[in-house]
Nucleic acid binder design. Structure first.
Length: 870
DNA sequence: AGAGCCCTCTCGACAT
């Protein structure tokens, strides 16, 4: 008897059949590709082969290189080989496609439907997102689909049902699209937990991530693919060279670039010419208000039909944005001014130019935005940079160099988010209950929680069953109960219903929604902006001039206005932190320019630095351009010399420090220094920051001999000093409000009664107070403090920067006049107090410049009046 | 006093 015959009949049939079918399936796939006119790229073939070998991994390739097919091919071939094309429709998903954007989900369905329908006719595809159709929802609930396209949140909802065990236990492969986007966020943590769940339900499943190029692909792989040996996971990169071009719009020779500012409207004419020279463009700005302002400015000189220009950002209503996206896709729009809202998303093949206003603060973001333009295979990725002030030019040069060397920023994954874990544990309680130990093991199999201790786990369970020591009297906090067989389950039906409505990790701020009197929603703005308006005032929003009528509850009613508004809303968001690598390179480029010497003009190849040469030389002449190994500290405004600065108490010099670490980090450094200096004697400091440095303006002179810089900049005692510098408890309270929502301590949405967000904030605040008083070591309080340190105060980055700074040689100068570096910081301190040339004048001038480019722009000195000096 | 500055503050899902 041959060993072959000894095998059970089922295996006997399966083994040879599978091998043959694998070959046949591959051939079928290839044939299909060729009928579609697609020739496979190398990295795509590598991905299909790796999948066939049973591997999991990460596929990293630029936009437009065919990542979807790379990820799709493996699972489709495998499904064909296992005979799925003839298979009777068995209930249960075979393949999941997870994407962070709803828009991407429907776009993906369109691209996936064809190959799946052609090759796996027995398969059905369901789209399960919040806005999916009833039919799709039914299909995903009954498990009547084989391929499910969904978001992390919708997946979490599906997995919170008892039926998920049957639905998901047949899953063979999972694809996570835009993994780099989810990786550094709590959404990524939520997904990690749900993937851990899926691995238990379907132990054989293979998982593939799709990612843009990031600095830590290895880590991204490790976080996504767990419990597999090195041999079983692989990173597949598209190594075809894709040249990157960044072209800076240099100001005309007779135009000077400002030393400060960020709006960049002086370039309006140039930008308009650029936009009108191509068929369709996206203009990226860094903030929403900047997008609105640029839109208003452009529209006032727009020569075409008004409908060919649009604005797009996250505070606009969904239908407004949808309209813009449709216009971009169909090519009806000539130009859209956008924020990061168009960084990702569905492709717009009509777009052939991308313009970036001001530096994008990171290499990855710049490349991502450049990639939004139509890509021909092999063609270079191109972006036009518009400098709003001198340092932007340097940033463009640094960014281009790093992008060409393929040096990208890393995305750091989050760990130990107990608010997300609390939410997940409740979901698991809903999905048929769990045994504590088994679920703990499952949770610990994720990268986010592998370091979790037993105590922490117990604290989470305890919190869900009892609330906390101080909340024990309130039954609504008892959400979990231990059943007779040692299984935990949801305490009651109310808990169950509320929980499903609160799934997700995105917490939005309360806002006033803007509506036409006829009812159309335009979007949302902040309460304090509306509070400053009088009825009848005209403001610019959503690309329209709106007259404010009245506020009712959380709605601001408006009507259309014919005149251009004088106000534009601003939103409190967060700053885009500058990449440390970009800052470092900026300093390096300027240092190099100085080293190149007097005849630098002949040697400097970089157009931006050539343009900046006079400025850099002036900096060197008045003060110093720091070399890479130096930290420059300027004392400006103290009088004639170092000696006289000491003598004259009336003129207190400001301290200007240039670590080139980005505004966010400089804020922390300025705070730290101010606190440490204040311990030397009572004093008051004003401080301002920009991307290259910070200014500290003491009210009373500081005795330079009373401190030493090394101690002042020491990383030692960093945390305590920082906590002292700010109202740390307020920062923690702010974080706690989000954490309480994610953990389900406060419910954002109660059906029927719409609890206003403000009320929610109050109850979260109360909880914070109660816990702080009676249960100071509550696991969610500890998390709030940790998040305040890491994400509000940026402690890890600050520590890194201080470590670097202490290695540098300090160079101190006492310039008599402001330097190109210091001026920007000094000017910043007067922001909001200075008025100059009016808006319309500037626009008119830009229009004139467009019409008659030969005519020199008016060089009249700006009228500046200082209303108030503090 | 200085003085070549308009306005800083992304994005993302789900639920009713």
């Amino acid at each position: 008897m041959s060993p072959r015959q000894a095998m059970p009949a089922s295996i006997q049939r399966a083994v040879p059949r599978r091998r043959q079918d694998m070959v046949a399936a591959r051939r079928a796939w290839r044939t299909w590709l060729s009928t579609q006119g697609i020739s496979a790229a190398r990295f795509q073939q590598q991905a299909w082969d790796a999948h066939a070998r049973g591997q999991s991994g990460l596929i990293s390739a630029p936009t437009g290189s065919g990542k979807t097919l790379a990820a799709l091919g493996g699972p489709i071939i495998a499904a064909m080989a296992s005979g799925a094309q003839e298979e009777k429709k068995e209930p249960g998903f075979r393949m999941l496609w997870i994407t962070p954007l709803r828009a991407l989900a429907s776009d993906t369905r369109e691209r996936i439907t064809k190959p799946v329908q052609d090759l796996l006719p027995a398969w059905r595809v369901a789209l399960r997102t919040g806005d999916a159709s009833a039919k799709d929802k039914r299909l995903s609930q009954t498990g009547g689909a084989q391929l499910l396209i969904t978001t992390p949140e919708s997946l979490a909802i599906l997995l919170s049902h008892e039926r998920s065990v049957e639905q998901f236990s047949g899953v063979q492969s999972v694809v996570v699209d835009e993994w780099h986007e989810l990786l550094p966020s709590k959404r990524g943590v939520l997904l990690q937990l749900n993937l851990a769940r899926l691995r238990v339900l379907a132990p054989e499943m293979q998982i593939w991530g799709l990612s843009a190029t990031i600095g830590n692909l290895d880590q991204a792989l490790q976080v996504l693919v767990r419990e597999r040996s090195e041999a079983q996971m692989v990173i597949i990169e598209d190594t075809r060279p894709k040249p990157f071009h960044l072209h800076s719009i240099l100001p005309a020779a007779n135009m000077r670039l400002p030393w400060a500012g960020h709006l960049g409207l002086a370039n309006l004419g140039e930008v308009a010419k650029l936009v009108l020279s191509t068929s369709t463009s996206i203009i990226f700005t860094n903030t929403r208000s900047q997008a609105e302002l640029w839109f208003t400015a452009l529209s006032s000189i727009w020569p075409e039909h008004a409908d060919t220009l649009a604005v797009h950002h996250s505070s606009l209503d969904h239908h407004v944005r949808q309209g813009v996206e449709d216009g971009l896709r169909s090519g009806q729009l000539r130009c859209v001014v956008a924020t990061s809202s168009l960084d990702l998303g569905v492709d717009f093949p009509a777009v052939d130019r991308v313009i970036q206003i001001g530096g994008a603060r990171s290499v990855a973001r710049t490349v991502q935005r450049a990639g939004r333009a139509k890509h021909r295979p092999g063609a270079a990725i191109h972006i036009d940079g518009v400098a709003t002030q001198a340092m932007d030019l340097c940033e463009f040069a640094a960014t281009r160099e790093l992008a060409q060397q393929r040096v990208y920023e890393s995305r750091t994954p989050l760990t130990l988010c107990f608010d997300v874990l609390s939410q997940h544990v409740m979901s698991m309680a809903l999905s048929g209950g769990f045994e504590a130990e088994a679920l703990m093991e499952e949770v610990k199999s994720s990268a986010a929680f592998e370091a979790m201790t037993m105590e922490q786990w117990n604290a989470v369970i305890d919190f869900l069953t009892r609330g906390s020591n101080s909340l024990v009297a309130y039954p609504q906090y008892e959400r979990l109960k231990l059943g007779t067989e040692g299984r935990y389950a949801a305490a009651n039906q109310v808990v169950t219903r509320r929980h499903r409505m609160g799934i997700g990790t995105i917490v939005t701020q309360s806002a006033i929604s803007v509506r036409y009197l006829r009812g159309t929603r335009l979007g949302s703005i902040e309460e304090n902006f509306i509070a400053r308006l009088q009825p009848g005032d005209v403001f610019n929003f959503a690309g329209r001039s709106l007259q404010f009528v009245r506020v009712e509850g959380t709605t601001a009613w408006v009507r259309r206005s014919a005149s251009i508004g004088t106000h534009t809303p601003a939103w409190a968001g967060s700053l885009m932190a500058m990449s440390l690598r970009v800052g470092e390179r900026m300093q390096g480029l300027m240092a190099q320019t100085v080293r190149d010497g007097d005849d630098a003009n002949h040697r400097i190849q970089t157009p931006e630095l050539r343009h900046l040469l006079p400025l850099i030389q002036l900096q060197q002449q008045r003060s110093r351009v720091p070399q890479e190994t130096q930290l420059l500290i300027e004392h400006v405004g103290g009088g004639q010399s170092k000696a006289s600065a000491r003598r004259s108490a009336a003129k207190v010099p400001g301290l200007f420090v240039y670590p080139f670490a980005g505004r966010v980090v400089h804020e922390g450094l300025a705070l730290l220094l101010a606190t440490r200096l204040a311990t030397l004697g009572s004093n008051t400091f004003f401080w301002t920051c920009n991307e290259i440095g910070f200014m500290l303006q003491p009210q009373l002179p500081i005795d330079e001999s009373s401190f030493n810089w090394t101690e002042l900049l020491s990383p030692q005692g960093l945390q305590t000093d920082l906590q002292e510098a700010v109202n740390f408890s307020e920062l923690a309270r702010k974080r706690f409000k989000e954490i309480a929502q994610i953990a389900g301590l406060v419910t954002a949405r109660i059906p029927g009664s719409r609890v206003p967000n403000r009320q929610l904030q109050v109850s979260a605040g109360l909880l914070f107070d109660v816990l702080s008083k009676y249960d100071p070591d509550h696991i969610l309080l500890l998390e709030a403090r940790q998040e305040a340190l890491n994400q509000e105060l940026h402690l890890p980055t600050l520590r890194e920067i201080l470590g670097r700074i202490t290695q540098l040689e300090r160079v101190q100068t006492w310039p008599q006049k402001h330097t190109p570096f210091s001026f920007g910081l000094w000017a910043e301190s007067f922001r909001g107090q200075i008025s100059n040339e009016t808006w319309t004048e500037k626009v008119k001038r830009a229009a004139a410049q467009m019409e008659d480019d030969a005519a020199p722009a008016s060089q009249g000195k700006n009228m500046i009046s200082r209303r108030k000096a503090a």
